[in-house]
Design a binder for these strands. Structure first.
Lengths: 193, 193
DNA sequence: AACAAAAAACTAATGATATTAGGCATTGTG
DNA sequence: CACAATGCCTAATATCATTAGTTTTTTGTT
């Protein structure tokens, strides 16, 4: 039997491509092996099982998302930064639906590495909101809010929930703007202005 | 062999209970059958397969969500109605995580019944936003926004994404309020006030 | 260069799952 | 009370993931 010349990276890459192309649920070891011209058990020389592959996709997706958000936020502040980060996240989800879907699943509580990557993305959101001059709990609540706004819109869009012929970018832009405006006002209100 | 006395409703109910208790992924026909004191193939006398069960849960969940949102919105308007509906949705997701998870999956495009239930929930959101005096596209964009806000926050919370010791109700309240405030202001801006 | 060790592929087997087919008992109805 | 429908069963097939054990190819060492 000739060797296929696989390694872990090649397996994970093929898995990502398959998940992007046919959806995360279509990613099975049997399918992946066939795609790579190999029998399913052979994959165990490179990965420890399906959960390992899924975790690798989740981490790769989270890394990529975070990198894009950081790039998008560079040199921007407040409302502009918030919108840029939102769209960076959305673009990634639309371009790599399989990786995105994998990265959405919450990391196992005992998976320190995966948790760490997730925390970095949260830190990026925190940084984006720092320009709004929020302190302490205000900043934490706002972070949860922005995560929810972005995750919610992108998730619904990825699930095909927006079927109307109405610009989705426009919807997203308005949502991000409304949240930003709302944030600014709640700050004013709290300052007693 | 004595009869178990099952019918479709009993099967679906047990499936919902199992999904709530152990998570939607734990819902398998084998598991469900064991729970009901019956062998898996016997379930086919009452449901047409696992997808049928999942669809039934999705529809039941969507119905219940919608009913709760309608009840919550009755007699309220604008910001108050928006907050009430958001919390009604959230309460349901926390009380019935399995049903909620099932109802989040988008209906198949050819599944008219399921689509219809989903549209009713959208109509409820539209109604809640009607008090804000939005017209045409503005109303549609805002509806997408509110759906995203609610779905996003509740989804993250259900996934265990909010691990800090910081009131989650408070975070959600602030998010809904920020969105409402942002909406009001974007309306003002558009009116040129 | 030869050979031993490591790595990568394979086949075979196990166990979970869904699902279909076919048989038998129970039940409710004429 | 017979009988037809119904509900449950066992048996069988097919798809997965995964483990064990084998073979073959590389690789690295002497």
């Amino acid at each position: 039997m000739p060797r296929a010349g696989l390694d872990r990276a090649a397996v994970i890459e093929a898995a990502a491509a398959l998940a992007d192309r046919e959806g995360l649920p279509a990613l099975t070891l049997a399918r992946l092996a066939a795609e790579l011209g190999v029998k399913a058990p052979s994959l165990y020389n490179h990965v420890s099982g399906l959960p390992d592959v899924e975790r690798a996709l989740a981490i790769a997706g989270a890394r990529e998302t975070n990198a894009r958000m950081l790039r998008a936020a560079a040199g921007k502040a407040r409302r502009e930064a918030l919108v840029a980060v939102g769209f960076a996240y959305r673009d990634f989800a639309l371009e790599r639906p399989g990786l995105y879907a994998a990265s959405v699943r919450a990391p196992a509580p005992e998976d320190a590495e995966h948790q760490r990557i997730g925390n970095e993305a949260v830190a990026t959101i925190v940084a984006v909101l720092s320009g709004f001059g929020l302190a302490d709990d205000d900043a934490l609540h706002a972070t949860r809010g922005l995560r929810a706004v972005i995750h919610g819109f992108v998730g619904l869009e990825a699930a095909g929930a927006f079927r109307l012929a109405l610009g989705r970018e426009e919807s997203f832009l308005r949502l991000l703007t409304a949240f930003a405006v709302g944030l600014e006002h709640s700050i004013d209100a709290r300052k007693g202005s």
